[in-house]
């Protein structure tokens, strides 16, 4: 995909080591406005490290992350993170509405404006009735929806998601995947989703970044020409979907995992 505009989020030659152990080697990719980018790689390839760098929660040893062309050194207002562990990312001592309001406190919003943002965000994720519940009064899927709502109310340009559906059951997972496609379509937000699930990556992504090797590097960037409207059953039975899935699977299997370096 040849970009003429500046990408919303761009990783440029990111390398990261913990002491002697290098985790990321020269990772580069970019996400255009409104694009759904999935980063896929087997467990332990440094996906979480990459995500921490992308959101400036951790620093890289070399390379930089750019948001709208500007290198970032601390968490930017344009980026919001949805963590895998929603039960620890939502505060159990605050009701859902208050959890969603928390990031808005730093902005000078009137109480009415704040309330509107909370209501809209809850509606966007289908949790209109949950404002006054505590997170622990809801199912896992609902809690992750609440965490997504909190990010939406913050109005980021980019949503970074770290294995967001790894701890929910299959049906809920499918629902949440479709919710994210729907949110991208309606709100035009750019989504970067990290997952170990190839099927999920191909189903959701406009583009799949394949991470492999130790230290991890980008072994391929695969465009997913399945259109923007997807369906759990019909998309997943299309021959081109299956072909892409197999292709990425093969890439991950073939990659030298421990003999590199």
């Amino acid at each position: 995909m040849q970009a003429t505009k500046t990408p919303v989020l761009e990783a440029v030659n990111i390398s990261k080591s913990y002491g002697e152990k290098q985790v990321l080697a020269d990772v580069s990719f970019s996400a255009e406005e409104g694009e759904f980018v999935c980063i896929v790689g087997p467990s332990g390839t440094g996906k979480t490290t990459l995500l921490r760098t992308l959101s400036a929660l951790g620093t890289a040893n070399s390379g930089e992350v750019r948001v709208n062309g500007t290198a970032i050194t601390r968490p930017p207002a344009e980026v919001s993170v949805v963590f895998q562990d929603y039960s620890r990312s939502l505060m159990p001592w605050m009701r859902v509405g208050k959890n969603i309001e928390l990031p808005l406190r730093r902005y000078k919003l009137s109480p009415a404006e704040r309330a509107t943002r909370v209501t809209e965000a809850l509606r966007d994720v289908g949790l209109e009735h949950a404002k006054d519940l505590y997170p622990w009064e809801m199912s896992g899927g609902m809690q992750q929806r609440a965490a997504i709502a909190r990010s939406l109310a913050y109005r980021p340009q980019v949503l970074i998601m770290d294995e967001p559906f790894a701890s929910v059951d299959a049906q809920t997972r499918a629902d949440l995947e479709d919710l994210m496609l729907d949110i991208r379509a309606r709100l035009g937000v750019t989504i970067v989703l990290v997952t170990h699930d190839i099927e999920e990556a191909v189903y959701l992504g406009d583009k799949v970044i394949v991470l492999s090797g130790r230290p991890a590097s980008v072994s391929a960037t695969v465009d997913v020409p399945l259109g923007r409207t997807r369906d759990q059953i019909s998309t997943k039975s299309r021959p081109d979907y299956l072909e892409l899935r197999a292709k990425i699977h093969a890439m991950i299997m073939q990659s030298p995992s421990s003999v590199s370096g």
């Binding site: 968490p75 207002a77 993170v81 990031p103 730093r106």
Partner: peptide, 14 residues
């Protein structure tokens, strides 16, 4: 909790 703290940091909570 480290995840809670990262959440607060990523949202730039004061």
């Amino acid at each position: 909790d480290p995840t809670a703290l990262q959440t607060f940091m990523s949202f730039r909570v004061r």
